[in-house]
Design a binder for these strands. Sequence first.
DNA 1: GATGTGGATTGATACGTTTTTACGAATCGG
DNA 2: CCGATTCGTAAAAACGTATCAATCCACATC
Lengths: 341, 341
Amino acid sequence: MAASVNVIDVARHAGVSLGTVSNVLNRPERVSPATRDRVLASIDELGFIRNEAARQLRVGRSRTIGLVVLDMGNPFFTDVAAGAESAASAAGLSVVLCNSAENVDRENANLNLLQEQRSYGILITPVTSKLTRIDEIRRHGTPAVLVDRGSSRNRCSVSVDDVVGGQLAVAHLVSLGHRRIAFVGGPMRLAQVADRLRGAHLAWAAGGRDPDQILVMEIPALKVSEGRRIGEAIALMPKQERPTAVFCANDLVALGLLQEMTRQRITVPGEIAIVGYDDIDFAAAAAVPLTSVRQPRWQLGEAAAQVLIEEVSEPKTHRHRQIVFEPDLVVRESTVPRAMP
Amino acid sequence: MAASVNVIDVARHAGVSLGTVSNVLNRPERVSPATRDRVLASIDELGFIRNEAARQLRVGRSRTIGLVVLDMGNPFFTDVAAGAESAASAAGLSVVLCNSAENVDRENANLNLLQEQRSYGILITPVTSKLTRIDEIRRHGTPAVLVDRGSSRNRCSVSVDDVVGGQLAVAHLVSLGHRRIAFVGGPMRLAQVADRLRGAHLAWAAGGRDPDQILVMEIPALKVSEGRRIGEAIALMPKQERPTAVFCANDLVALGLLQEMTRQRITVPGEIAIVGYDDIDFAAAAAVPLTSVRQPRWQLGEAAAQVLIEEVSEPKTHRHRQIVFEPDLVVRESTVPRAMP
DNA sequence: GATGTGGATTGATACGTTTTTACGAATCGG
DNA sequence: CCGATTCGTAAAAACGTATCAATCCACATC
């Protein structure tokens, strides 16, 4: 490595003190234009690159927001990340994406990392409903905002009303006349899944139906492959017992299910209607375009980052906020057959 | 913030010197089990969290690999990232994902950040063929490995042979008897796009055909929306001039095109056959399952991280390596109609 | 000409860790 | 029981930056 040049070398080269160099870097308005240009020239000539670690050590906090998501492969979360990044970079911050993969241990490892790095703050979609670890981190000085997950008054959160989402989905199926429906989702420790199921139950019960009639098929993870597995199980059911509609806890599962239905030559929506959740871009491009509950993904990330930044930059006046967006239903051909041309 | 506790506090609390605490943290085998346990207990009790910035400042290099990708929303790259992360975490490192969005300025901003952070190393799919900036960074002491992009002898790279990929795709179309084909991709400054087109030309010319017969439709970015735009353009062409097959530079574009074809009631593969590239998971779940050129995405990321780690940990014996994987073609119904049941 | 003013610049210090060197204690073979 | 060797600990010296109080200087004011 070319002996790394530091702020002292720059100062010497420009004939100023190191304090001035630091000022050029951090408060350029304080230093006269002539000196500033000289220093900048030296920086350029020497190839000086500020050492972020040293800066951070001195300041005590990094300029990086940690975003811990449940599944990096799910476009829902990359969209959330894009929104967060937009708000962050507007404030001169950056975002690192951490993947917990719905796994408590990985979540903890990620949180440890972020804490050791003295992150500016943490945005997280938690793996469980136990938020003790997160509260502990906050008590320790690193603010955290819950993403895609509501919270009580004592924390900040930005979420979408999943109960309403579940209601929208099932109310839609009910209005189409379905009498045997299934819910596919899990693990139930994910608040999103539990809430969507709760919404489903509410909508089902609204017409005086027995909520227990909803066939709940729990899966260990919200992945395409789990959707396919459930599809195999459904294909094995005798046709008269088979649900005529399935509400999936997210689009990946729904796409997996749809794929398996196609493979098994079970028509959608003819024999089985499918509703997904998230309305990721691929939902519209699916074999049968997917009816799905749309969430404002990008805004979710943006709002979360903004709330976090607000908490850090105005700690005095900050009051914890719980922002809740409303989802809406996008009806496509996986529930309503396209009018034939 | 609860006055942050440091290694000195821990040492005092455990009745040892701070050097011992550091040893417990970094070379636990050097310290007696009794002392070690005492120190660990103190760490736990005091809630000590190692300050990574200070550590890094001292050591001179971070424990984080930067991975700069062209499109965070493309599942291809998240799979690459997963592979890289696997190799990294095996070596006690972590990976931060940076999105250049096919944009030179964003790429540079990301590289600046990684350089200021004294990254362990950089994995990058560059936006242009100008690699001067990357070489400069390497000269400065941060090793970099090209991902999904070949290189000459003087750099490390891990890639998939895109020329072969293009050949596979077009040879397949030729074997199906297509006489008018189009290539959709861009921008051409992306080596991947240029190489895939070159492969296409080679395969086309192989039968003595005029390479210029391939209709090249250039797009500014490899996104779903661009695929849709091209789809609109194709739909407007008189049917006898329309290509009977389209080779898309990646699956996102192919999915967008497919979506628009469906919307316009142009049958696939009947009126137009489509070949994609990358074989992302969603390709198989598309309206018409997509024929695509498969790349070993995960292995790409894994190998890249391994090569990087090798370069850093054995700088003496390290010789730059160019690893090239072979792609293969996955034929699905977007080119070959499914036999009717 | 003395004094005041305000902006520009300086230089010392602290941030929290890792590493190195030196030294003390304990262990082992002879 | 002694000397040699190993093992573990202690103390101090960086690492490169931001900050802040102090100083300097030029210029305007009286």
